[in-house]
Write a protein that binds this DNA or RNA. Structure first.
Lengths: 341, 341
DNA sequence: TTGAAAGCGGTACCAA
DNA sequence: TTGGTACCGCTTTCAA
């Protein structure tokens, strides 16, 4: 069927070994022979069979990316960034979505492990690191993105989430909010860290941290819109009610804004809202949403670059590296109140 | 390193052939042996090396998906739908994004072909089918999604685009619009077909088809927001200006709405707008956007199912099959005018 | 500088 | 029912 090295070798009257070496620029092949080989490769549009190469070398030239939800722009941007880097090096990306289901994630990872991927890049939907330990046992290269586990040292690429929390909360305070609520998930590291940053910001401005103003939910990050809507409704029943809300991601913020709008209150005059993630359409929403940008594509790029340094042996799994992106505040109308400071 | 069939065979005092057969439920292995083998496989958490299997069988158990833009929800939903189907059958999906660049697409496809994927699912960014002919030459299984080429018979899964054009235009007419413009790309099949549906609808309602009301651009579908914004601005300078606009996709509609808003006109009272694709956030936009839904996930699912019937030999490349989804109108505020009929 | 041989981990064929 | 052998296409080692 397809052209093989053997065909090239026969055509040229050399051995397959020579072809193999010439193709990969080994320096023990004469320039003349190499030229002839490369020439013939071009003519026949020969491409090495990667399954065979993989079997022989033990490398698959594939990387895996598992994300909780490919439709959420955060993760598709990560995928985009990673693709761009891999493409240049002749690697391909197997992408799987866990749909935020821990069991499905394990299943997808098993599938991938059967293919002996060179690196596994995972934004994990697990609640704990247990199922990830087999990467360590089997000495597989693992890179976590977005979410990490405190008791599980591994390479990690993400954003400085505490800084996000501080930044968003500082912004609300600066815009005159004093009763600042927080809505989001609770079981994943970005949520926990952002919450911590939120508290930190309140405290350092001398504002009280009120438990009733913090609405976190297990799994609150999926279906963020529903979480945001319901949580906001409960917050609106409080007295005094919040005059600013920090939502741990943009879908949550969209849900919260919907609840505020339906209650007849105005954004940002009555309640200011800020999200996180800076989805591409944030500026086109009913009220353009202030958000904290995470440079998702760079997260993907950096994860892919780190992946290569693992493949090339420049980094080892023994010394996990952490790469944090700097978040960036993107103020829009949803927090556009006159400062009262 | 990893467990192999040989390990299992040695442990059990049988041959690798027996293990191989037992694992794949060949019926010439005694129940007793099979049970022992499966037992041991479980114990050792053995997984067959897919590169080796691929080399031996000539199949890769991989499918490829190439889309122009993974961040656009349409394509990520297609990917999601396809994943769901493949997962169940032990297949994995290699996903690549062409970034709407024909050359990059060719490069990505070459990469994939080196891996001998079992099926290639492509939403092509090519302007013509030339570069796709090698699939035919090399007898590779190809399925086009979303975009097709009139002179190139191939399996195709998409939406009834003419119907979309009719449906959207009918809706505008029904809502009282009489000066209906159309904005979008021009070089890809969905754009052309939707435009045809648009014209058809106008004609069958006795309305004139005005060339100055049709603004199509080469490559207008990428950066649809820019296309929509600029095209709408040019339409606004016309006299009489349109009182309704059919945008060939949602990003274009968002750009158009922005232009209308900036000009001080109201949506939908002065100009009604309808898009296509029904992005998940359509209802959360400044003016909730009416759109035509394409059931993107089902496109992905159907493409994957068709892929399997190709792998299993139930369909051949010689008799291309076309699967068209029925579009569905989703009216929202952007066309919410009182009917004048 | 070149190439013969062995092996990567499976599967298919056919004989035992 | 079981297994020996050849082979898939490539890389590595080592001898020529």
């Amino acid at each position: 069927m397809a052209v093989t090295m053997k065909d090239i070798a026969n055509d040229l009257g050399v051995s397959v070994v020579t072809v193999s070496k010439a193709m990969r620029n080994h320096n023990d092949i004469s320039l003349k022979t190499r030229t002839r080989v490369l020439q013939r490769i071009k003519e026949l549009d020969y491409r090495p069979n990667l399954a065979a190469r993989s079997l022989a070398t033990g490398k698959s030239y594939l990387m895996g990316l598992v994300v909780p939800d490919l439709v959420y722009p955060f993760f598709s941007l990560v995928a985009k960034g990673a693709s761009r880097v891999l493409r240049k090096k002749g690697y391909s990306l197997i992408i799987a979505s866990s749909e935020e289901d821990p069991d499905l994630e394990i299943q997808e990872l098993s599938q991938m492990m059967a293919r002996n991927l060179d690196v596994y890049i995972v934004a994990s939907a697990q609640t704990g690191p247990e199922s990830l330990r087999r990467f360590v046992e089997q000495k597989k290269s693992l890179i976590l993105v977005d979410r990490r586990f405190s008791s599980f040292p591994a390479h990690y690429v993400g954003t400085d989430d505490k800084e996000i929390g501080r930044m968003a909360t500082d912004h609300l305070i600066e815009r005159g909010c004093r009763q600042i609520a927080c809505i989001g998930g609770r079981d994943v590291s970005p949520a926990m860290d952002r919450l911590e940053g939120y508290k930190h910001a309140l405290i350092s401005h001398g504002l009280p941290v009120l438990e009733q103003f913090i609405v976190t939910r297990v799994n609150g990050d999926n279906h963020g819109d529903v979480t945001g809507f319901e949580a906001m409704n409960s917050l609106l029943r409080l007295s005094p009610r919040p005059d600013g809300v920090f939502c741990l991601n943009d879908p949550t913020a969209m849900g919260a804004m919907k609840a505020i709008a339906e209650s007849g209150l105005r954004i940002p005059q009555d309640i200011a809202v800020i999200g996180c993630g800076n989805v591409p359409y944030a500026s086109e929403l009913r009220v353009p949403l202030s958000s904290v940008d995470q440079d998702c594509e760079m997260i993907g790029e950096n994860a892919a670059k780190l992946a290569f340094s693992l493949v090339e042996g420049k980094q080892s799994m023994a010394f996990p590296k952490t790469i944090l992106m700097k978040p960036k505040l993107i103020p829009r109308n949803s927090t556009n109140r006159i400062s009262q400071e």
